[in-house]
Design a protein around this nucleic acid. Structure first.
Lengths: 193, 193
DNA sequence: AGTAAAACATATCATAGGTCAAGTTTTTTG
DNA sequence: CAAAAAACTTGACCTATGATATGTTTTACT
């Protein structure tokens, strides 16, 4: 009766939104299965984001350029939504780019479909609202961590809370996500272990 | 016909939400006019936020404690909404506290009223969704500035974009909002002028 | 207005983390 | 599987900012 895809989605939606069955039943048929190769650029700087991905397997990073280095402001993994939300929300190009960090498998849904499904639809709107709120909370927690903890403490925290991710993700991306240079992270890792 | 209060609100809502007249007409009667004294604590650490304020005059800061110093993560002024959104969204106590930085005049609306007005109401939900999205964008911009600019550059930017606010707000709060110590900001100000 | 307290400025010193450069290891690719 | 490229490590040095301490100015209070 239910394909594995649908079970996966049901779990993700339940987790995030406590959405009733009818909602994910509405959404499922409009999701497109897609694969990204490792290091594939999903959205370039200057382009507008028109999709949201739900990650089934793999990881995706959101970056911007400073000098000649990419800086990572978000890391997304299995079960998470991935998107350049800044561009998506404003519906205009952003300075951010989005890249697959591993071979990555997603369900993707277009802005058009999302609008269609939520237009005049209270539950659809509630879901988007819940999503925006959880994005805000995540950003504010990042901000507080950045102001409260040293680089070493931030690394240790990540090590505690997401040990597998540290192995799967390139050091340079972890470094920039933690707000330090690769050299600094290297020293920190050395010291910690 | 229209009281000044209503004109003010109409302007604010138009600006943020492009909401039709019917919406602010629905909301207006449920707003309560309130005054905070300078340095008055609006929400303490450990309490849950149940209100959103719309600032008519004055300014409000959102803080948390590190060691024995308050750190400012948000500054709100005239025409802006003010709230410990973290606590409001999760509807549970937060580590943040909220303080009036000047004698401040607001319209305040309770969570109960907001829920009542938006329950089953599509436009109400859209407004809340727009609010959540704009909060996220603000936080992400803060994050990018923090990673891109030095303390001095952040100060100069604030000086350019909000010169009056710098005069109205205590240096220590500006400093912590910019992510530096008061001593550092003092040096920066000295250097810049 | 006068006193106490808080905020701000300035100086010195300490340090986390950045920069640059030279290895070493790992990954990619022909 | 070898060569090239990219990623990571390590070291020496530097700089922005933090910590502490002291003096000065501003603000708050009776």
């Amino acid at each position: 009766m239910e394909r594995p895809d649908e079970l996966f989605l049901k779990r993700v939606f339940d987790y995030y939104f406590e959405a009733p069955l009818s909602v994910w039943a509405t959404i499922t048929p409009h999701l497109e299965h897609r694969n990204y190769k490792k290091n594939e650029t999903i959205k370039e700087v200057g382009q507008t984001e028109h999709h949201i991905d739900i990650i089934i397997k793999g990881s995706i990073g959101v970056f911007f350029w400073t000098d000649n280095h990419p800086k990572c402001i978000d890391l997304f993994y299995e079960d998470y939504f991935s998107c350049d939300y800044m561009s998506y929300i404003e519906s205009k190009p952003s300075e951010l780019f989005v890249q697959a960090l591993e071979n990555t498998e997603v369900f993707t849904i277009s802005r058009t479909k999302i609008n269609e499904l939520s237009e005049g639809n209270l539950m659809g709107n509630k879901i988007i609202r819940a999503a925006a709120q959880s994005l805000f909370l995540h950003k504010q927690r990042q901000q507080i961590e950045m102001l409260t903890l040293t680089a070493e403490e931030r690394y240790k925290k990540m090590l505690m809370e997401q040990p597998d991710l540290i192995n799967r993700t390139a050091s340079k991306h972890i470094a920039s996500y933690l707000g330090v240079t690769p050299e600094s992270l290297s020293r920190i890792r050395n010291k910690v272990s």
